[in-house]
Design a protein around this nucleic acid. Structure first.
Lengths: 130, 130
DNA sequence: TATCAGTTTAGAACGATTCTAATGTGTTGA
DNA sequence: TCAACACATTAGAATCGTTCTAAACTGATA
């Protein structure tokens, strides 16, 4: 992710100071799972004070452009994933932590979807014990 | 589910008027997915006015006793499932509707869990298109 | 049937998220 | 280059699902 400004423009996003900082962090080549809160904390540590409203706006803007995936893991907060490829997750409830599963998995024995419905995607969540 | 009072007592739950009404509805033999709100609406239609706080309390009490399962489907609300067996779901975002998958499915190609972690259970969520 | 622990309730509080409306800033084109 | 404007950012208010509080109520028990 070399030229972040160019990258944002390519995605019809005006490269504002805040978006550049956030994009630089999110798309540094290491996949991440963030919440608005965790991102805000990380940015504060990086001495970048960006309002929560902007963080929410930016995460949603990036999501709208397909740069982030939304994860529905628990009902307490929204997780965003910088890995937008189809993949699965380990989830440790105790640690409140998600780990990508990047290998191909197959689900067999799937029943037919209900009438007039098509399968969009299959999500596997592997719950960890400890 | 014949004698609800007895059933509640068996689960160390005092059979109050409200719990009896809610249990009668939830455990009528037809598996259901409810949220606090949907349950409240349903009860109002049945002319049973039970406060939201009690509905939340009761769902959690039933959950604590293992009579309900919590589902992590989306981050907007908590779904409770009267089917406490291990099973999977179809989910239609458009209809905000869940459908049980009661057949056995196999997931192959699963990687090893991270160090010191054990797999607890595998949950498959099949997203529907329309 | 009096007692009391457990339950219900209205309404306040909470926490994550969204909205509002005032201020600020990239971009454009003259 | 810079004026003008559409788009962004912001603090703080509002919202929404859920939980808490504390007062009133009610099953169970002795």
């Amino acid at each position: 992710m070399k030229d972040i400004k160019h990258f944002l423009r390519q995605n019809s996003l005006r490269p504002t100071k805040q978006r550049v900082i956030i994009a630089n962090y999110l798309f540094d080549g290491v996949n991440k799972h963030v919440t608005a809160e965790s991102l805000s904390n990380k940015l504060l540590k990086m001495k970048a004070e960006i309002s929560l409203a902007t963080i929410y706006n930016t995460l949603h803007d990036f999501y709208e452009k397909g740069l982030l995936k939304k994860l529905m893991i628990n009902s307490e907060r929204i997780y965003f994933d910088t890995n937008t490829e189809h993949h699965h997750h380990f989830y440790s409830k105790k640690d409140q932590k998600l780990i990508d599963i990047n290998v191909d998995m197959k689900v067999s024995g799937l029943p037919k979807p209900p009438k007039n419905k098509k399968i969009n995607k299959i999500e596997v969540l592997v719950h960890l014990d400890n």
